[in-house]
Design a protein around this nucleic acid. Sequence first.
DNA 1: GAAGTGGATATACC
DNA 2: ACTGGTATATCCACTTC
Length: 813
Amino acid sequence: MKIEFIPISYDYFDFEGRNYAQIIGRDKNGKRVCLIDSCDVYFWAILEEGVKEKEIEKLREKIEKIKLDEKGRKTKVEKTEVHEKNFLGKKVKAIKIFATNYKDLHGIADKMGMPEIEKRRGYDLGFITHYIIEKKLNPLLWYEISGETLEAMEFGGIENALDVDLCLKVKTINPLKKDEFQKKVLAFDIEADELKIGDGEILMVSLVGDNFKKVITWKKNIPLPYVEYVKDEAELIEKFVETVKKISPDFLVGYFSDGFDMPYLKARAEKYRIKLSLGLDGSQPKFSRGVMTTAKIEGIAHIDLLRFIETAYSQYMSSETLSLNEVAHEFLGESKKDFEFRHSSKIKENEWEKYFEYNLHDSVLTYKIFEKIWPDLLEFTRIMHEPVFDVSRNGMSTNVEDYVIHNLDKFNEIPEKRPTYDEIGERQKRGKYEGAFVFQPEPGLYEDIAIFDFTSSYGSVIVTYNLSKSTFLEKPEKESYSIEIENKKVYFSKKSGFFPEMLKEIIEKRRQYKEELKIKPDAIKKARSNAFKLLANASYGYLGFFGARYYCEEAAAATAAFAREAIKNIIDKIDKEGYKTIYSDTDSIAFLLGKRTKEDAKKFLKKLNSELPGIMELELEDFYKRGIWVTKRTGEFGAKKKYALINYEDKLKIRGFETVRRDWCNLARETQNKVLRLILGEGNEKKAFDYIKKIVKEVKERKVELKEMTIKTQLKKPISEYKAISPHVIAAKKMIDKEMPVDMGSLIEYYIAETKEKTKLIREKVKLPDEKGEYNIEYYLKHQILPAVENIMQVFNVDVNTILESKKQKTLF
DNA sequence: GAAGTGGATATACC
DNA sequence: ACTGGTATATCCACTTC
């Protein structure tokens, strides 16, 4: 029979020693389908140069006799073939070795230390990756599948165990041009008494899907349409499982659910000896070990939104934390419902309804955010060619690597292996190489500024100069790209390599999205364009990442070197043309228009572009009315990475200033922001100065609310590992004493208070936000407010410290 | 015990 | 273990006089 099918969730099982892919998806009518399929599993033995035909035949005979009997599996080499392949761009002869079970590829490879074999490769890919490469059944794309239904009890009766409408053994797979997909989404969120996994009771769980809203609870029976009352916690867990089963979503979505909701449910279910059988085969979620736990559900794509947001968006978000509240605010313009958390025993009778609403709303937000990010998740998954479960959790280096691995066959390339533990150690030992160029700015207030920047700068350098592990030349060749790094010249072939070639496609996608964004801007298009920019830039990071298969220090260093050369070239040309460069960082240049018009600058941009090599492209970032660069706190030089601009739509662009840093108190940040706005918007430093005086007065008169004085700093490691006991470490210790949940990664909030003891140490004045006390006037003036505006006013030769001196005289009397 | 300096730490920029 | 380097700023910890 034939069906139209979109694959969503991938798993595999072993049957009689062989591997089978078990793929769950939907057909065009929304029926849930399970495909069962197998594929060849193999790896490569790359032969030494010049091995003769006869020797190869002998070798094949030897290899074909290899058998393994480990871990209760009997695996053998099924057959071998000889192929002409490429490895790292070089033509090689290789034996393709097919084995019974993919788990034994490594074991077989280990038995092949023959002298004719130079390298063994391709034994370290997962089965699902093998399968997707072999059968080209890519996730979240439509296919026409022909296959046959299973016979009774085939594969040990898998069909009966699976909760699907149809089960097919695959015969053929053909891609379809079809896009629409009515996915079924269910968001969920639990509320518990204790934050530590499993320590408290689960009070309620909310579920939100398409036209579906529910809160299951055992705490209070309130007649509300969405509340379902059960008798105890055990029944709550059972009801939750039952509801998920009934809805049977493609995507079960949580927020931090890998780290909280799922492990919590697991812990509580274990306590009551209940099976958390969420899988379509009735299996429980499988939790991965390691630093980051993940919860995988058979047949349903469990998505932890936080993980995807961290990799795909966080760099471009203005939220201070990635809490559901702040992320919802930024993505949706909506906030969480207010609810003051207390232990359930302290919640009053009439407060439960609010708590339920709160819980439900969290799932609503999770559901809505998922809908918002869906286009990106879809695009990411389709580009990476790996299941959405993995893509949604992977970091950028893995994304780059997945992309490469799944595109190798176009180049007839054998995959490179993962580095060994020792190789990683070696790579980590190497020193840093020189990175980006940052222009030394002259402090001052400037007017009429234009900013150009390179589109996907590092990515386009890699493509243009063909930089990669496979194009790196040990010995110089006549026709090659070369550049000096650390007094040593490195060379790269001009014969196009597969890595740069692949990157080209990513950059083209990014350009396309950016164009669409220009035509009709919206937040999501922006995020998507940024997501691809991220992928392009990550390719550079990937080259220098110690865990990468295609790690190439020389290529990474050369990328930075070529980029430095390119930007310096542009700076020269801009200045030669009669403009004046005032700043530049990595891939952007800010310069003064002087007497020229915006149109002149645009024309000039065209000219510059016509002279750029390869796919390098410079674009107009924006024009700005005014901009300010300040001095460093130490020394008279202009500070790098710290400036503020205002464009002709009066929109501020602030970089590096305390305004954008969360480890400064709100008051300092807001004061600085206001001062920048006054100076840039109106060009009025007098007003700014008056404003500062006003704030200083308010601080001295204690008119400022304590919460404006809170400083937030993150705990980057376990408390015990801190050598320097800084204020936030003290605050964290205080929190632990109060049994508040503190962990690595927690954002610690505190303020600096007045104390009786005479001490110089700031850490001895630390108090928690809810601790009684008064803010320390001297500290906030001298360490927060004035430093935040000092360098800005210095541009106008105004010394803000005089405010303190003159006022001090008065207050003395 | 004050002053100066380097190290540890956090955060931002691209 | 889960991209790279560049840069600023703060406060602690130590040295020196």
